[in-house]
Design a protein around this nucleic acid. Structure first.
Length: 215
DNA sequence: CACCAGGCAAGTA
DNA sequence: TACTTGCATGGT
């Protein structure tokens, strides 16, 4: 299976090119995006992030000082704005308390410990934590999301449970533990699913389709 | 009109 | 432990 996954990776990379994920100009912006995109289309998240940028809120101290209810108004387009405002504040507060509001200090902490810290924040689950670890902090952690599971199911590549950590282990055991590979692979799977894997695999144009069938 | 979108926490049986 | 519900906007 290791070889098969590498082949798929190469095919997707050739078909779609580098994805340059995660969209965002700073680690903090990526963390914010990771929370805002929970069960929400990226289109709406962008509107919320633009609002935040316009108000100078993509800033550790500004966010920390911002009142929760006012932040909720700013991020309204992303939906679930009350709970997401609370979650953003909880995350920022945790970063202030644990790391003195410094991303550089976060970078000194081992990955497993960072992950536990992130998961202890109310509103940060496995996917959000791993997105932050991989895309904001460059740690070699595979991100599992709805697209990842849909891809595995549609292409019949994996027989195990769809539990988050089982799926994650499947990828991490069958790929080199490399930040670049995990970053690009996840981004390519999102690209694939958004175009071809909506419900079923193997539209004729799917880049994974070949003479043997799909994937 | 219904349904989905890069989840998570809290409640119930 | 396993399943359900609330959260809420905007696009198709």
């Amino acid at each position: 299976m290791t070889k098969r996954l590498r082949e798929i990776f190469e095919k997707l990379l050739t078909a779609f090119g580098q994805r340059h994920w995660w969209p965002g100009d700073s680690p903090l912006e990526i963390m914010v995006g990771a929370v805002l995109t929970q069960n929400t289309s990226w289109r709406n998240v962008e509107k919320a992030i633009d609002n935040m940028r316009a108000k100078g809120l993509l800033d550790m101290d500004a966010l920390h000082l911002m009142e929760e209810d006012r932040l909720a108004d700013v991020i309204r387009p992303a939906g679930f704005y009350r709970v997401k405002s609370k979650r953003l504040k909880a995350l920022i507060t945790d970063i202030h308390v644990r790391y003195g509001a410094s991303i550089d200090h976060m970078r000194q902490v081992p990955t497993w410990q960072l992950r536990e810290h992130l998961l202890s924040v109310k509103g940060v689950g496995p996917e959000t934590a791993d997105s932050i670890l991989l895309y904001a902090l460059d740690r070699p952690v595979f991100v599992v999301d709805a697209y990842t599971k849909r891809f595995l199911k549609n292409h019949g590549l994996y027989e195990g449970s769809d539990d988050y950590h089982d799926v994650q282990k499947f990828f991490m055991d069958n790929l080199p533990r490399d930040t670049y590979i995990f970053n690009e692979f996840h981004a390519l799977l999102v690209c694939l699913c958004q175009r071809y894997c909506k419900k079923r695999p193997s539209c004729p144009a799917c880049p994974l389709m070949d003479e043997r069938g799909c994937a």
